[in-house]
Amino acid sequence: MASVFDVTLVCLILAVGAWSTFARLTFSAIVIFIVYGLLLSLAWVRLAAVDVALTEAAIGSGVTGMLLLNAVARLRSTDAAPTPSRSSVNIAAGVFCTLITASLAGLVLVPPQVPVSLAPSVMESLGQSGLGNPVAGVLFVYRSLDTLLEKVVLVLALIAVWSLAPDGLWGGKPALRPFPQRDSVLIFLARTVPPIGIMVGIYMFWVGADEPGGAFQGGAVLAAMWILVMIAGLAAVPPTSSHALRLALIVGPVVFLAIGILGIFLTGTFLAYPEGYAKPLIIAIEATLTVSIGVTLAMHVVGPPEKEWRS
């Protein structure tokens, strides 16, 4: 029988999700969405996927929440749009959505006869790569092409965001407005929390090889700390044309690609790690990835350049 906690958690998630969808004000919708994200990471813990819970909390609701809050602050002027009207189209859409949900629920209720899983084959050959965490194994050993392509997607999305700046401001500084007053409390926070945060981020990346954690989650924490410092005004927002920023952006994918190509010369196949050296190589990849992901996520939140900057 499903435990009471699970049932309440699911009901809570659905309630908060519905509330966020139908909230009158966009600002409250987004705040509720962040709560929804945290509840979801609880659900991931219940589904015994701690890695994913960390990712959901860090990226799914953390950084995305920051992004949406920043957006709603900018859009405050156009917020008074009415809630969805009760027109016939909406009712029809509702009916179709329930039909889709019903068909999916029907599938969920009838689990496949023979449970099918790749877990045994993952565990059986995980030992060769020296990694302890199976999810990290899948990400960086078995399906490393996915991870590489996904990194390229992240970098390309950033180029796309930057491309939305007007011609004149290309290479300029993104307009993250630091907190207006020279307020002591936020600066105090920005001075004390980041060291802990950075330590937690690095710990998360480091432990990722054997325990749940990894480059993505660590990178997200680092990004959060950097944004906190920038908002408090302690650190200047780097111009998008700064050489250091761009190098930091691409150091992750470049190292990943280099090691992949190295695999061709040493073992004859792309993205294959030579015997015995798998773990150090993967750690090297993850280290640079953490830095790149951190910088990229922060730059996504900060947005396209909006101020003149002549280096």
Binding site: A48, A49, T55, P134, V135, G137, D146, T147, L154, F216
Partner: peptide, 25 residues
Amino acid sequence: GAAAGLGGDPVPQAMVITGIVVAFS
């Protein structure tokens, strides 16, 4: 798909992590 001593099949979990990052971008 939990088997071989794991709480869940790591392959779909890895896909979800990649999916979340792509959804974020």
